[in-house]
Every structure is written in C-alpha cells, then in structure tokens.
C-alpha cells in the first residue's frame, strides 16, 4: 500500500479517461491508495500537504453537485490549489471551443484538469491536445470512472472482496456512464455483472462488454449480491423510450416487497440524484440494505487517490 505523499511507483498513467483501459492491477492500486487516504477525512484537521503547489482545475461544463464538491474537497485535502468553473460562467458560453478554453487554463499553469462534459470523448479530446493530466468526471454516456471506482471501493469495503460477487445494475443502461464504468471495473476484478432494464434502454451489443441482460426484476433480484440502481432521466419518457413514469415505477422500481426475495446482505447502491418513488422507494433508499451515503463518503477518498496518482505519474 502506498504511503501518504510517496509517489506510487507502479502508476504510470497521466490521465484517467475511463476504466476500460485499466488493468486489474491498476484498479487495485487506485482502491488501495484510496484506502490509505480514507483516514485523512476522519481527522480533525482534514488536510495533508501531498499536492502542495499543484493546481487542479475543475471544468464542469455539464452541471453537477456531488461530483464537483467531492473533487473540490479531495483536491483541498491534498493541499492542491483549485479553480472551478461551469459553462454559464465561462467563455465556453461565448462560443470558445473546449480545446481553446482548456489551453488557456493550461497556459496559467495547471497540473490536472477534471472535466465533466455532456459529449462522450470530450476528455480524450483534451488529453490529445494538452500537456497536463486529464481526469474524466463523466463524459456523456461514456464513462464516469471515479464513480465506478467509488462503487467498487464501497463493495470491497462492505463485502471484503469483489471477485465472485454478482453485481446487478438496474435501469437506464443505454445512457448511463456509471453503468459502463461499473461494468468494466467490476468484470476486471472478477465480479459477474448482470443488468436489468426496459429493452429500449439496454443498448445494442452490451453482452459483448461481458454482462448478462435481464428484463424481469423478480428474476434479476435474487441473483444479486449488490444492486446499483440508476437514476431514470424523466426526459427519456418524453422521447418515447418507455410509456410512462407510472409503468416504469411498477415494472422496474425497486421496493421492499421485491427485496424479500433478495439474498441476505444485499447492498443497495445509487449514484444519485435519486428519484424517490420511481426507480427506488424511500423505504429502500433509507433501509438497511442501502449504502448510498457510504458511496458519497468513499468518493472523496477515491478522488484523492486519483488526483494523487495522476500527479505522481508525471514525475
């Protein structure tokens, strides 16, 4: 396990663009590093000097609450300087291209750009055109690697291992970056991943990512050690991908009655923000299976680890 402030010798990646590219060993390095950083958040003085003098820019071109807060606190706890901006308050809203905006930021001397963007591949575009590190904080329906990592961290913390578990992902798989990062990360660490949702929200060829597909919750739930319930975007109904919110809640909503058939020790996760009463009932969200707030807490440690590793990789 890496010691605080000591460069991780095994880590060589300058960017974190997705979990698809990472090996099982690299995933373990991040999770182990996060483990070592978790303790910092429990101190009275929640700060270590590890990234003193480093500049982390949080470019959130798409709105976010928990991810931007989490990254901002994570960078702060490592003593990095942070600047954060959103689309509305930046020159992107004046028609400047993403690459130009980022190059200007880089010219002021930044070490890491954390990017949230609605276009898949936007972090790859920056990584191709910039010298600094790029961390993907969610790119459209592609990946959300730190969310995947914090989900894996939470499962490992609660279950002691990932290998051999069956992890279910339920809901809108097609448009979910969380689903994709979870699928890559979990399958690499030896979990069986099953997905469940309406046929219109399960994308073509998903089986080739190494998952099994279900459309019936009552068949799906009893198999799972963990269920990650995805947020259903209400606008998907308007674009005709399912008939009504009411039908979605009845057919794909997770409620206490359905969980009666679940395994003992089932973990319920949700990346947030939740639509209570639609994909998840309040009783389940706040019930004994739920680890949703642990996920948020663990997100900080995971993001500290990621910032630390990508900064270290540059030497």
């Amino acid at each position: 396990m890496a010691q605080l402030g000591e460069p991780a010798l095994e880590w060589t990646r300058k960017h974190l663009l997705g979990l698809e590219d990472l090996s099982a060993e690299e995933l373990d390095i991040i999770l182990d590093t996060a483990e070592s950083f978790r303790e910092v958040s429990t101190r009275k003085r929640k700060k270590v000097p590890t990234l003193t003098g480093k500049v982390v820019v949080l470019m959130f071109v798409e709105p976010s609450t928990r991810t931007v807060t989490s990254f901002s606190l994570a960078a702060g706890r490592l003593s990095a300087d942070t600047v954060s901006f959103s689309k509305g308050g930046s020159s992107i809203s004046k028609g400047e291209t993403l690459v130009d905006t980022a190059r200007n930021i880089q010219a002021m001397g930044c070490d890491v750009i954390v990017l949230r963007h609605s276009a898949p591949g936007a972090p790859h575009l920056l990584a191709r055109n910039l010298e600094c590190s790029v961390v993907n904080a969610g790119d459209g329906a592609h990946e959300h690697p730190t969310q995947g990592l914090l989900d894996m961290f939470t499962i490992r913390e609660r279950k002691g291992h990932i290998e051999g578990l069956t992890v279910g992902i339920c809901g809108d798989i097609k448009y979910s970056r969380v689903a994709r990062s979870n699928i890559w990360g979990l399958t690499k660490l030896g979990a069986r991943v099953v997905v469940c949702g309406p046929a219109t929200l399960i994308p073509d060829g998903i089986e080739e990512m190494g998952v099994e597909v279900f459309h019936d919750l009552d068949e799906f739930i009893p198999q799972c050690d963990v269920i990650n319930i995805l947020r259903i975007q209400l606008e998907r109904q308007k674009s005709g991908l399912f008939p009504s919110i009411r039908e979605y809640a009845r057919v794909f909503g997770i409620n206490s009655e359905r969980l009666e058939r679940a395994k003992d020790g089932l973990l319920i996760m949700h990346p947030g923000p939740m639509n209570r009463g639609i994909e998840i009932t309040p009783a389940v969200a706040d019930g004994p299976h739920s680890v949703v707030l642990d996920q948020v807490t663990n997100g900080l440690a995971v993001r500290m680890a990621v910032l630390y590793l990508v900064c270290g990789a540059k030497g």
Partner: peptide, 10 residues
Amino acid sequence: EGTMSTILGL
C-alpha cells in the same frame, strides 16, 4: 450503432 457505440456511449 453496435457494440462500439455502446462502449463509447455515442
């Protein structure tokens, strides 16, 4: 549309 678009989220 296919496995690649699913992987890439496009």
